[in-house]
Nucleic acid binder design. Structure first.
Lengths: 344, 344
DNA sequence: GCCAATTTTGTAAGCGCTTACACTCGACTT
DNA sequence: AAGTCGAGTGTAAGCGCTTACAAAATTGGC
C-alpha cells in the first residue's frame, strides 16, 4: 500500500509521445487498415518505450475485446481434462489471452445455468473452448448465435470447429487387438452414466466394439456389455459384478483407462490376475497406464486441447466469416503392454 | 449472428424502474452505507425483475472491482494442483467470481515475468490465490503492496493468509510409522529439484525424517537420502539408483506419493516386491494410492484449496485492514495399506 | 417550531478505450 | 486546372459504471 502508485500509461500518453491522435494510435495498435507505415512505427515505438498495455476493461467497455477466453470442462480434476486444460491454457497465454476456467463439477444443472446466461458470459470473454460438454440443440444454437467464438474438443455435429479422435475407430482397434490375440469371448465395460457428458463418446465406442465383433462373425452377448461409467470405482464395480454374477470372459475392453484400472483392481481383489486369467485393454493412455502395464489405445490429449485452442484463437483474430466450421480428427495408436496376451 | 440482440440491461434501466438515480442504485447494489431500507428493497426488486447484472468491464474501468481472481499454480496437471484448483474454483464461482487460471508450467521464467508485471495483473483481477509458488523476497513485498488481495496454499512466512499442512510433522509421522514397524534402515526419496517450487516443503519433510530417526537414536546415512524430485519418473530413477549403486534399505519414506509410485515400479522391475523386500510409505494419499495399496500420510488437498479460496474471498469483501494475515495448518492422517509391514 | 447536524439522494465528471464521422491532402480523372 | 476520390488522420461521442460533491430530506435539540 505504500507503493508509489505508477499513474498508469494510457493511450493518451502514447499519442502524446508519438505526436499522433489517440484514434490513430488505437488503430495502429490493433493493426487496422488506413494507418501509414510511418505512423505505425512511431506508435509502436512510443508504446514500447512507455511499456504501454491497453486496459482490457476500457477496451471491452468501448466495444473491443476482453482479451480473455473461457475453458468449460465437466470437471477439472479428471486426468483427461487437466491435461487438455493445461495445454489450452498454454496456447491462450502465449497469444496474450487470459484463461477463465469454468468447471461444471459434473453437475448438469451448472451447465444449464451457464448456458442460459450467454449474454453474461459473452460480456466477460471473447470466446469459449468446450471440452466434452453435452449441449441441447437450443443451447448449441444460442451459443452459435451469441457472438462468442467457439471451439470444442470431443464433441459432435457442432456448428463450430471441433477436434477429437475417432472413438468408434479406437474402440474397434482395441477390440480387434483382443480378437486378434485369439479371444472370442470379450466383454465391454461401457461408459454411459446418466447425465454423463461423454455419452455420445461412450456410444461410439460401443459401436466400434460391436463392429469389431461383427467382423469376426461374433455376436454381442448382452451379459458381457456392462455399464461402468468412466471412473475407477465404476470400473471396479462393473468388473466385480461381471465376474461374480454374470460370466468371466477371457478378455475385457474397457471404455477408458480409468475404468480399466478399476477392472484391474477388481481382478486382483478376486484373487485372479492379468493377463493370466483375463486380458484387459483400455482407451486413453493415462499417465498411470504405463506404470500398470495396461494395454491401451493412446489418444493425444494435450494435442487436442492445444489444437482446439489454436482454432479458437484463429477465429478470434479473423472474425471474417468466410470460414466454415471444420472437424479435425486426431490419430490414435495401439499401445501393447502386459495386460493383454494371446489366449492359450 | 441472427439473434435479436438484447439491448443489455444497464444500471440506468434499474434506476428508471426503481425511480431512483443511478448513483443510489449503484450504492444499493453494492451494499454501501447511506441507503435507506426502502431504496434498498426497491432497487434489488427492480434489479431482479430486469435480471440486471453489472458490467464487470464498466465497473472495473470506473474504479470498482473486476469480479475475478487468479489462481496461480506451478502446473495444472499434477494431481495435487488439479484438486486444489477445482476446489478453489468452486468457492470462487459460488461467490460470483470468475477464476482466471494461470499455470506456470513448471517454468520459473514464467513466474518471474508474471510477478514483474503486477500492475497488469491487478488490472485484470481483484485477488490471487498462490499454490506452492516460490517467490523472492522482492516479489513478495511487491505483491503484498500491489493492492491485490492475496492468499496461498503451502507457502511459508508470507505476509498474507496461508493454509497448508505441517510438512515436518507429516514426514515425522511417516518415518515413525516405519520405525515403529521395526525398520531401522530407512531411506528417504527426497524432493528438491532445482527450481522446484516446493523446495521449502521438501526441506521440511527432510527435517521431519531426520527428527524421527534422531528420536530413535539413529543417524542419517547420507547414502540413504536421495534426490527424487517429486515425479513418478524421478522416484523410479532414484529408487533404481539406490538399489543398484548404493544399498538396499528395509524401508523407504518417499517425499510424496508420486515418488513412491516410481519407487514401487522400480522395485517391481528389479524383480523384488513390496512389502516383502521393502516397505514404502509416501505423503499425499493420491487417488491411485489406494489402488496401489500404498501406505501414506493423507493430506486434505481439496480442503486446502477451498479454505484458502474462502480466506481470499473474505479479504476481498472486507478490505478493511484490521485483519492480520494468519497461517492455518490442516491435519494429516496416517493411512496404513499393503506397502508397509513389520520387519521380520 | 426553528436551525444545525445528519442522513439520504441526485448531479456530473470522469475511467481508458473504440468508432462514426468529418476533415485534410495528394493523386487521378476529364 | 477544376473536380473527384480515397488514404490517412483527427474530433468527439459514448460504452456502463463509480464517486466526489452538491442538494434535498430528515432528524433532533432547545
Amino acid at each position: 500500500m505504500l507503493q508509489g502508485k505508477t499513474p498508469r500509461v494510457t493511450i493518451q500518453d502514447v499519442a502524446a509521445l508519438s505526436g499522433l491522435s489517440i484514434c490513430t494510435v488505437s488503430r495502429a495498435l490493433r493493426n487496422l487498415p488506413n494507418v501509414s507505415e510511418a505512423a505505425q512505427t512511431r506508435v509502436s515505438g512510443a508504446a514500447a518505450k512507455l511499456g504501454y498495455k491497453a486496459s482490457s476493461a476500457a477496451s471491452r467497455l468501448a466495444g473491443g475485446s476482453t482479451g480473455s477466453v473461457a475453458i468449460i470442462a465437466p470437471t477439472a480434476t479428471a486426468w483427461f481434462f487437466a491435461q487438455a486444460v493445461e495445454a489450452a491454457e498454454e496456447v491462450f497465454a502465449d497469444s496474450g489471452y487470459d484463461t477463465v476456467l469454468i468447471s461444471l463439477r459434473n453437475r448438469p444443472s451448472l451447465a444449464r445455468k451457464l448456458f442460459a446466461d450467454l449474454e453474461g458470459l459473452s460480456q466477460r470473454v471473447d470466446g469459449v473452448l468446450l471440452l466434452n460438454i453435452a449441449l441441447s440443440e437450443a443451447e448449441m444454437a444460442a451459443l452459435a448465435g451469441s457472438g462468442l467464438a467457439v471451439a470444442s474438443v470431443g464433441m459432435h455435429d457442432v456448428p463450430w470447429d471441433n477436434v477429437g479422435i475417432d472413438n468408434e475407430d479406437a474402440a474397434h482397434a482395441a477390440t480387434s487387438h483382443l480378437l486378434g490375440l485369439g479371444h472370442w469371448d470379450v466383454a465391454m465395460l461401457a461408459g454411459s452414466e446418466i447425465g454423463e457428458p461423454s455419452l455420445v463418446t461412450a456410444n461410439e465406442r460401443l459401436k466400434g466394439f460391436e463392429r469389431a465383433l461383427d467382423e469376426h462373425d461374433l455376436t454381442v452377448d448382452p451379459d458381457l456389455v456392462i455399464d461402468a461409467g468412466s471412473s475407477i470405482e465404476g470400473g471396479r464395480r462393473a468388473m466385480t459384478e461381471l465376474i461374480e454374477n454374470r460370466r468371466m470372459p477371457s478378455a475385457i475392453f474397457a471404455g477408458c483407462d480409468e475404468t480399466a484400472f478399476g477392472a484391474l483392481m477388481a481382478v486382483r481383489d478376486l484373487g485372479l490376475s492379468t493377463p493370466k486369467n483375463v486380458s484387459i485393454i483400455g482407451i486413453d493412455d493415462h499417465q498411470m497406464s504405463w506404470f500398470l502395464g495396461l494395454s491401451t489405445i493412446a489418444q493425444p490429449v494435450a494435442d487436442q486441447g492445444a489444437f482446439a485452442a489454436n482454432l479458437l484463437i484463429e477465429r478470434l483474430h479473423r472474425s471474417g466469416l468466410p470460414n466454415p466450421p471444420a472437424s479435425h480428427v486426431l490419430e490414435t495408436k495401439l499401445v501393447e503392454r502386459r495386460s493383454t496376451r494371446r489366449r492359450r
